[in-house]
Every structure is written in C-alpha cells, then in structure tokens.
Amino acid sequence: MKVVASGSIKGGVGKTASAVNLAAEATRSGARVLVWDLDPQGSATYLLRVEHRLAGRGARGLIAADATLARHVRATMVTGLHLLPSDRSLRFLDLHLDATGDRHRRLAELLQPLHDAYDVVILDCPAGASLAFEGALRASDVLLVPVIPSTLAVVTLAQLEDLVAGRKPRPELLGHVSMLDRRKPLQREIADALLDRPDMLRTVVPNSTAIEGMGPERGPVTAFAPNSVAARAYRALWGELADRLWG
C-alpha cells in the first residue's frame, strides 16, 4: 500500500482537486483506492457524494486507542474508490492527536490494518502546518504538493522542503504545477522555472472550467468531462506518479 499526502501549507492551490482526481485515475488504472478526507471542510467528501459525518464519536473516536478506520469507510460513486469521510469534529483533530501517546505516529498506526485492502491511500490534508499534517507526513510515501505558479507558492514549496528534510522516515516531496493560466506571462515564466526542478512532476494542470465544474457536478472531472484538458492532465499526472510508485 502506498500512501500519498496531497498537502501544502498554503490554501487554495488545488489539493482537494488533485486528491479526488488522482484517486479517480488511480482507480481507473486498476488500483484499490481510499481517500481519507482530513479536512474538516469536507470538500473531498462533498465531491465524492458521501455524508459529511463520521460514525460514532467523530474525530475523537476516529483516533481513539481502540479505533479501526474500516468502520468509517464508505463507497463512492466511483466503483472501486472508497472514502473515509470528513466531519466537522475534525477541526479538533489536533487536540485529540495531542492527547494520544504518539501524536505524530497515530495516523500511520491507524492506516496499518488497511495495508492489504488498498493499493493507494490518498490523504487530503487541510492547509497549514498542523499536527494532522505532521501525522500525514509521517504516514506517507509521497507528499504531493500542488504549486500554483506564483511567487508565494514557490516560497511555500521551499518551506515544505525544509519541513520534510531530515525526517525519518522521509516522504518523497513531489510538486506539480497547478491552476496554470497560460494567458499570463508571469505564470508561464514561473511554471517554466518550476518545471526545471527535479522534484516537480512534468504534467501541468491548467486552470480549467472543468475543474470548477467539480462542485456543481459533484464528482471527479474524469466522470463528467473525461475528454477535457483537465481530465487528460490528471490522467497524465497519475501516470507519472504511478511510474514513481511502481515503475
């Protein structure tokens, strides 16, 4: 089982869009996939049409000593793609994690029993450098960082590199250009510079109306606009990521 955290300190960069669309593509490529929506907003939960509610005692029960994640898992509209939904109580997840014996390892421990049931787990992380994000880093093989072509996003990428450096185990940090508007010269220039970096995947996800359409359509772009530029980009992005994970 490979664990990919879709995360960034910065908000609004396309983390959930990446998590949901890559999960759908992973499923289409023959993987058994679980998305864990760690964001109390529950955007991935909404997009995958699952109730925004955890069974039992919410976030506290989710990470309790006797907890099993499997009881919270739900099927989605995408055959073969499962979701561990979000819940409003996740806004207190850091407090609950802090109260556990090993706050950084708890998420990894919870994922361990699912090892044989899934090939890929994608963690949709909330923005910010929280305890939950630390736990997600600890549990992950790859930290996938969507980077919008702006100066501040590039600064964030450098901060994430610092955050990851020196960790044991250390997730591989991979960025990808997200929400590129090719009409803007500065964005093109920054994207080109980003693509020269070895830790960036080659596929660029454009700023696209299809991605905006995920909200009203409530599904991954591949489900309602399979031939759109955005759907093709996520397909290629998953191909690159799969090569890194299994190639």
Partner: peptide, 28 residues
C-alpha cells in the same frame, strides 16, 4: 475492494486465450 482496470484497446471478438501481463499498464 475489487480492483477494476478498463482495457482501452478495441475489444476482441472473442476473449483472448492468454492475458499478457506485460501489456497492462504499470501499476498495482
């Protein structure tokens, strides 16, 4: 959960006798 893999090549008239694993995309 069962894993599903769409096969994008044109479907043959009969199910092939041999399933060539090397022809499948790299992945789990």
């Amino acid at each position: 959960v069962p894993a599903h893999l769409p096969l994008t090549d044109p479907p043959p008239s009969e199910p092939p006798r041999v399933l060539e694993l090397s022809a499948l995309p790299a992945g789990p």
